[in-house]
């Protein structure tokens, strides 16, 4: 019995969250006494094989088919179905990426299973996992048990495990030729839209605004604060969706991932999709009228109250302090 872990890549360039998935799988493997096998779907003997074989795994399987060069959900589902049927794993562990969200539920459904998705941690109880998922936009946690027989499909949220904790070792490499049936979608080449003119990943200080800012005109008070601090302005998704700020200012799973020295969140409730983009910031400040907002769970400093009262005072006091 084993754990399969998915190695995601684009043109043989590794998606780093796959290392987090390896760490998760190794950890579960230790707790449940299961060995871990990595699976890389590819159209050739993937260039990533040696790198992945350098981790403490039982095996690395390259699931090979000419249709696996560019990702499509149909081809990936066919490939995974065969790998799972051939290896009969106890668990299938993946990082909760957009690609995994696209194909993993399909594979699971085809095998009469579901995905326990976007988990933030697990415990092992009597030889089986209990997974914790965040629900209601991060306001609550849920402990979830698995139903039925193996295989169990589990995906972990980005950052739930550390990729640099993946244990090194040596793994055997195996190629498995898989059949891929009709692929009902035709992909074009991926592209970056209007190449981000603002690179927030280099920012030392970020002032970020969320729905609590209420209107486009109000952004000025956040900009004044940013100016006083020498900070860059950023936003959560709803602000960019409303086109109050350009998309290259967006922080979160569909925007940029940042880790500045100081992150000030104004009127941001802290949905998971935003938090994954900024939780590794050095110091997090949250100002929000809702004391229950999940952003306070990860904040170092919090002010519960009206940001329209707090921010002008903050800006003035900072100007004074800086002389």
């Amino acid at each position: 019995m084993s754990i399969l872990v998915f190695i995601e890549h684009k043109d043989c360039v590794l998606n780093k969250t796959s290392l987090e998935a390896i760490t998760a799988a190794q950890s579960i493997g230790k707790d449940l006494g299961l060995k871990v096998t990595a699976v890389i779907p590819c159209d050739k003997d993937c260039d990533l094989v040696q790198e992945i074989a350098g981790y403490d795994l039982e095996k690395v399987i390259v699931a090979k088919n000419e249709k696996l060069g560019t990702y499509t959900p149909d081809a990936y589902a066919d490939a995974w179905e065969q790998v799972i049927k051939a290896t009969n794993p106890q668990y299938v562990v993946m990082a909760h990426t957009y690609q995994v969200r696209d194909f993993a539920p399909k594979v699971a459904a085809r095998l009469g299973r579901e995905v326990v998705g976007d988990c933030i941690r697990y415990t092992a109880e009597s030889g089986k996992l209990v997974l914790t998922r965040r629900i209601f936009l991060g306001k609550l946690d849920a402990d979830v048990t698995l139903g039925g027989d193996a295989p169990y499909f589990v995906t972990f949220q980005s950052g739930a495990f550390r990729g640099d904790n993946a244990e090194k070792g040596t793994a055997a490499v195996e190629t498995m030729d898989v059949n891929v049936g009709d692929v009902r979608m035709t992909p074009e080449a991926p592209f970056q839209e209007a190449k981000a003119s603002v690179d927030l990943t280099k920012s030392e200080i970020i002032v970020a605004i969320g729905r609590g800012i209420k209107s486009q005109e109000n952004i000025a008070i956040a900009e004044q604060l940013a100016e006083a601090l020498g900070a860059d302005i950023a936003a959560s998704r709803p602000i960019c969706d409303s086109e109050w700020l350009p998309i290259d200012r967006q922080i979160g799973s569909s925007g940029q991932t940042v880790a500045p020295k100081l992150y000030i969140a104004l009127g941001i409730s802290g949905a998971i999709q935003h938090i994954v983009g900024m939780k590794n910031s050095g110091t997090i400040v949250a100002i929000n009228k809702d004391a229950e907002a999940p952003i306070f769970d990860i904040a170092d400093y919090g002010i519960v109250g009206d940001l329209f009262e707090a921010v002008p005072v903050l800006t003035e006091e900072i100007k004074k302090a800086k002389g």
Binding site: G138, L140, D143, D297, G302, I303, A310, V313
Partner: peptide, 26 residues
């Protein structure tokens, strides 16, 4: 048979000690 089941929901465990400032006065 393969259904996942929510056993318990609860407020998220805090991962950080948050210093709350102002005591309600923004």
């Amino acid at each position: 048979a393969g259904a996942q089941t929510i056993q318990k929901v609860y407020m998220p465990l805090k991962t950080k000690q948050t210093q709350m400032l102002g005591n309600g006065d923004a």
